[in-house]
Design a protein around this nucleic acid. Structure first.
Lengths: 228, 228
DNA sequence: ACCTGAACACCGTTCAAGT
DNA sequence: ACCTGAACACCGTTCAAGT
């Protein structure tokens, strides 16, 4: 804002890239938006609030983003970019473990991210970085591309779901025994769930590792006789 | 609305249950809300729109629901209630397959449901019906309760994630090769993903079955020597 | 080229008032 | 007991106007 302020002298812009000040401001907005997302969650990222945050009128944002969706996509992009999902492991299991631990870590750093990615049209192309790594590793494990893609979707649903539950929850609402006792549910029996002793502190990391191992050993079993 | 209209004669309500007209109206609202959810999606379920739908002022809803969240919870409850997740199979694999196929089917009937359940505090106690069935079956498969719970969360994340993607998507946004070609992503290579031939029609059911089988064979492998 | 201000059509919810 | 109407503090976005 301080230094290179020019009177706009007709300024025929180069067709491809390099719009000096424009990019700078867009980046500033994206950073502020990501901050808002991290501090106050997905619903707090609002055109009006972001504008207030950087001391500008809401409508000023529309010079840099065509819509709220465009803004959100840029924020997601900025959060993901720079993350390396490829651990460079030769063992395909290790490679996949690394990849999804990294994805989980990213979601824990930016707790609003999973929900953000679910908004229609917000997921940027960078979400395919883990796909690339996974498909490579699964190919090495002997899976056909189609099955690799299916496995990738399984892993990604799992990872985002768990991370979302870990950061937004654990809702008291989702503690089963508690809920079932308070609300009466006629016509259903819940003996197993009711007498379930939920550990006081649920170990999310251990649960995530368990799920990952389960899927990986399922993949390994695909080549074997008993698998069905 | 037609028949038993009484002048409210002081009506000391019985302490426990049976508020005749009140329950009727609440149910009517819930049904209309579910209709709105099914026809126009999660975001369309709005106090004001629902009120308009049943020909009443928005504030009238607050006589039957304490908040929007309360309304949404009742809608989710109404969608889930009556669904039988227990297929009565003796084989634990069949039992779990049936359970999650049922859950998936429910999400396809009510496309807004997965997103609805993710809203904080909306998931009703009935969401634990599949948990009951799953924990029982996994116990039969020899899993400890803690691992059973972890597996349940894996399966539920997977099922809701896939169903959500199937009904809200398939976004053109999530077709990888397309996106990567249009947006340039500097500093990343995507050869595997780029040359991926995505089948023109993605078979969601087959992908779901595949994931289910993968997880189940992972569970089966837990008792075996090679599992790690 | 970038920003403002007023306006429009929406939200959830509170509060006082009607019957 | 149930409903209305006006109001408040929010949304995303359009449009005309300023510099």
């Amino acid at each position: 804002m301080a230094s290179t302020r020019r009177t706009s002298k007709k300024a025929r812009r180069p067709p491809a890239a390099g719009n000096w000040r424009r990019d700078l401001t867009r980046e500033k907005l994206v950073r502020a938006g990501l901050g808002l997302l991290d501090r106050e969650g997905c619903d707090a990222v609002t055109m009006r609030r972001l504008a207030g945050q950087v001391g500008v009128t809401p409508m000023a944002l529309y010079n840099h983003f065509s819509s709220k969706r465009d803004l959100l996509r840029a924020i997601a992009e900025h959060a993901i970019r720079g993350t390396e999902f490829d651990g460079g492991h030769t063992d395909w299991r290790e490679q996949i473990r690394h990849c999804f631990h990294t994805l989980r870590g990213l979601c824990l750093e930016h707790p609003g991210l999973p929900r953000l990615l679910e908004i229609e049209g917000v997921a940027p192309a960078s979400v395919f970085a883990p796909m690339e790594v996974t498909l490579g590793a699964l190919g090495q494990a002997g899976l056909e591309p189609l099955d690799g893609l299916r496995t990738y979707f399984l892993l990604v649903s799992f990872t985002l779901g768990q991370a979302s539950y870990e950061t937004s929850g654990p809702f008291p609402d989702l503690d089963p025994s508690e809920r079932i006792r308070s609300e009466g549910l006629p016509g259903r029996s819940y003996h197993t769930t009711e007498r379930l002793e939920r550990p006081q502190t649920w170990d999310f990391k251990a649960a995530f590792d368990f799920g990952l191992t389960l899927v990986l050993s399922g993949v390994a079993a695909l080549g074997k006789p008993d698998a069905r």
